[in-house]
């Protein structure tokens, strides 16, 4: 019997149709997410990491459209199903927490109302049971005085507390997948540490899979089993956290890791990636990173590399590896001749 991953994304393409033309925000993204795993998607602004998960949940802005590909959740195709069906999955089986806990909560309703809304919508509970569940969720995310919090409005809570409410809301229906879109970017370091720890604990306790979107490689290192690195709407490298951090094979990933200050870099110059991020309206023909890449070859400007397999846990779309692979093959052949 063939193994079905919890979430299987294949060649997902999403574009925004603006006055200036078609912006290919996501240009063919593929990955699998297994039950109970934490997948990190890392990239800079405009790399398409958020649009990828918004496409999975189908919560794109009106100008955005999924133009191709497939998203299979538990074997069920999500692209093209009607909104009624999608609603049974969104917020129930797959839920999301957003970056800014201030704007993702409705300022005109109490915390209790907003928490219970999701529970009443997706589960068969009555109002009293929903309230019990809401209290249970607030306790789960370590919010003190949960009874009092139910009656409070979002503005009465601190940023860290609001993000806890966001997590409680997302987990209220015991989802299979929790998507976290830069959940700690708006928070301070010590509060970020609290929230990341909480997510780790809950993941162990409840066993859901997490897709963690962030630009912070530190957060990725701490939390993720597997990592997807995105640049200009496509995946440039993908593998286990150890492979990505200790054996990076795409020039962009290497540059990114080099540009962060570390213990050793003190008193030395940082090694930045030169140039500026790419304009999605004017994508080059070849590798999107080629204009900024120090080691770009002729072929990089001409055509894009396919997914090149590094090992069982690792793949990269960078021609540098093709060269390595082919020269290795040559050596192998030479050895065979002898």
């Amino acid at each position: 019997m063939e193994h079905t991953p919890l979430l299987k994304v294949r060649d997902l393409k999403t574009s925004f149709f603006t006055d200036a033309g078609e912006v290919k925000a996501v240009g063919g993204v593929s990955f699998n997410l297994e039950r109970g795993k934490v997948l990190g998607i890392v990239g800079e602004s405009g790399s398409g990491k958020s649009v990828t998960v918004y496409s999975i949940l189908q919560i794109l802005a009106p100008t955005g459209k999924i133009v191709g590909g497939s998203v299979k959740f538990n074997g069920q195709e999500l692209i093209g199903i009607d909104e009624k069906e999608m609603r049974k999955i969104r917020g129930n089986r797959i839920s999301i927490i957003f970056q800014d806990p201030m704007t993702s909560l409705n300022p005109t309703y109490t915390i209790g109302h907003q928490l219970m809304e999701a529970i009443l919508l997706h589960t068969g509970r009555n109002k009293k049971q929903a309230r019990e569940r809401a209290l249970e969720m607030l306790r789960l995310v370590n919010i003190n005085e949960p009874e009092k919090r139910l009656k409070q409005y979002p503005h009465e809570l601190s940023g860290g507390m609001r993000q806890r409410v966001g997590i409680a809301m997302a987990l209220a229906c015991e989802p299979d997948i929790l998507i976290a879109d830069e959940p700690t970017t708006a928070l301070d370091v010590t509060i970020q540490a609290q929230i990341l720890e909480l997510m780790q604990d809950l993941q162990k306790k409840l066993g859901m899979a997490i897709i963690m979107i962030t630009h912070d490689l530190g957060v990725i290192a701490q939390l993720c089993d597997e990592v997807v690195v995105m640049y200009a709407g496509s995946i440039c490298e993908q593998g286990t956290a150890d492979e990505i951090f200790y054996n990076p094979k795409h020039e962009y990933t290497k540059g990114l890791l080099r540009s962060i200050p570390t213990d050793q870099s003190n008193g030395q110059k940082l090694v930045p990636i030169t140039g500026t991020p790419i304009d999605l309206l004017n994508m080059p023909k070849g590798c999107p990173f080629a204009p900024r890449c120090d080691n770009a070859m002729k072929i990089c400007l001409r055509e894009r590399a396919d997914r090149i397999r590094i090992n069982d846990d690792h793949m990269a779309t960078c021609w540098m590896n093709a060269k390595e692979a082919s020269s290795e093959q040559e050596k192998q052949e030479e050895a065979d001749h002898e």
Binding site: V189, T190, D216, G218, A221, Q222, F245, Y246, L257, I260
Partner: peptide, 17 residues
Amino acid sequence: AVPVPDPNTARANRRIA
């Protein structure tokens, strides 16, 4: 609390919450 961009250090790191 600083997230270190290094999985081995991050896993071994004991944070003071």
